[in-house]
Design a protein around this nucleic acid. Structure first.
Lengths: 140, 140
DNA sequence: AGCTAAATCACCCTTTCGGGTGAAGGATTT
DNA sequence: AAATCCTTCACCCGAAAGGGTGATTTAGCT
């Protein structure tokens, strides 16, 4: 950015110097003032295009689409915090027993939660639940 | 694009006309030729920037990252066509029985396929298989 | 204080899944 | 022709998942 501005100023200075030089060498005397101005206009249009592109060149960094929880849908379906938690672990491929261990509750509790989840998500298998939950952006 | 070029030419013509007009009105007589050229240079630098940005403005359409099958990984794990097919249906939340019906084979066949899949994917549950398959881009 | 939703757990029963083994037929390769 | 791989199917068994009902405790809201 700063370098570009400096370069631009330098280029302009050099150009004016060249013009002066040419003028003294009587080379441009043969040309009309309009042609002269036209040439300058064209050259600096090019310079402008170059400068403009340089200055606005975006350094695009491809970043993965970050997950934003769809809380509206979560509320609409009436899924509780605990159920959502279970849903998340389910999506990570854990068995009900493993989920129970992780949350320090009994297997029956997890079964109840998952049953309620299936009702609310209107599915009948955990793979479907995971799939639907991802579609609705309830889980990453 | 075409319109921009026409506009540019038009602007240049108008500018030259204005210059001529001013010249005749003896207004620019007071200024040195260097100042005159500098002004033209500055103005057309601006025009160049504008034109450059106009011409290169990208109409970016956000398109979802399309799925490309990771055939290398598929071969590396030695997953057959049929197994891959079963894996896809599994990821869509179908039960083994439903997959069997879809592929017109017996339930036992699907069980064999899924068992082999779990071995090859090094998992023990279908949810894990689906998760891993998605990570490895074996399925959308 | 009373109501309600959430979370917890239990018991029952059925279905689905997963693991292991075996085997037959077809296609491809060596 | 023999070896190998894929696909298909069968049977058994145990583990996991799913469906239904009911009950208790806790927390939040009116």
């Amino acid at each position: 950015m700063k370098r570009t501005v400096i370069l631009y100023g330098l280029a302009l200075a050099v150009f004016v110097f060249v013009l002066k030089f040419l003028e003294y060498r009587l080379i441009i005397r043969d040309l009309t003032i309009e042609f002269y101005v036209g040439a300058v206009a064209l050259i600096f249009t090019g310079v402008g295009i170059w400068a403009g592109l340089k200055l606005t060149r975006k350094h695009v960094v491809m970043v993965g689409p970050e997950f934003v929880l769809n809380e509206i849908e979560l509320q609409r379906l009436g899924i509780s915090k605990r159920e959502h938690e279970v849903l998340g672990l389910m999506a990570q491929g854990f068995s009900n027993q493993q989920i129970a261990d992780k949350l320090f509750v009994s297997l029956n509790t997890i079964k109840t939660h998952s049953s309620n989840l299936f009702l609310k998500l209107e599915v009948s298998r955990r793979t479907q639940a995971v799939q639907k939950a991802k579609e609705l952006r309830l889980i990453p």
